[in-house]
């Protein structure tokens, strides 16, 4: 499955990453506020360049285990303001996962929601997934707040199920089923 790029939402253009996106990507991937609840540490320019190189080819899903990673480009700003992902977890069980990381400079305007909704659409409509989940640290309220606005349900609150950046970390898992998506859209 390869989406018909560029994908357009009301205000955003979603497309595969391109070589020249490095500065935009690094601007938020190096932000301590952004990486606080991500598994990755704050990116050095080299980390961002490595990430960019890897994501350049993540523009289609051909087998389970792969990630679709798209740049969220905001034309009015002329910048990539975040990235959204869709992981194909299982072909047999028709499971997927979405994720999003956005530049705080553009938060609070519903842009992440617009991008995430498009990833749910790709997952349910194009990939025919039955269930899509999303995970985050419970302290990352803006992240799970968005999952709730998307209509996802909290299915799990794992307490101290891993050591996260030197301390015991909790995890929320939210999910949505295709029938819930069909009712909501």
């Amino acid at each position: 499955m390869r989406p018909d790029y560029p994908l357009k939402t009301d205000r955003l253009v979603l497309r595969p990453f391109e070589e020249h996106d490095l500065d935009d990507l690094h601007a938020y991937r190096s932000d301590p506020e952004v990486c606080r609840y991500l598994y990755t540490h704050c990116a050095t320019l080299e980390d961002s360049a490595d990430r960019l190189t890897k994501t350049l080819t993540m523009s289609e899903l051909t087998e389970e285990g792969q990630w679709l990673v798209l740049a969220a480009y905001l034309p009015e700003a002329g910048r990539v303001i975040g990235d959204v992902v869709l992981k194909w977890i299982s072909e047999k069980h028709r499971q997927g996962e979405i994720g999003y990381v956005f530049n705080p400079e553009f938060q609070g305007r519903g842009l992440a929601r617009e991008a995430a909704e498009e990833m749910l659409r790709i997952g349910f409509e194009d990939m025919k997934l039955h269930r899509i989940e999303a995970q985050c640290d419970p302290r990352n309220e803006p992240s799970w707040g968005l999952m709730e606005r998307l209509g996802m349900r909290r299915e799990a609150h794992f307490r101290q199920n891993e050591v996260f950046k030197g301390e015991w970390g909790d995890l929320y898992i939210y999910a949505m089923l295709d029938e819930e998506y069909a009712r909501a859209s």
């Binding site: 047999k92 069980h93 039955h130 269930r131 299915e155 999910a175």
Partner: peptide, 10 residues
């Protein structure tokens, strides 16, 4: 009970 997964697998 920490999780109730719905339709996570066949």
């Amino acid at each position: 009970r920490e999780a109730h997964f719905r339709h996570k697998e066949i």
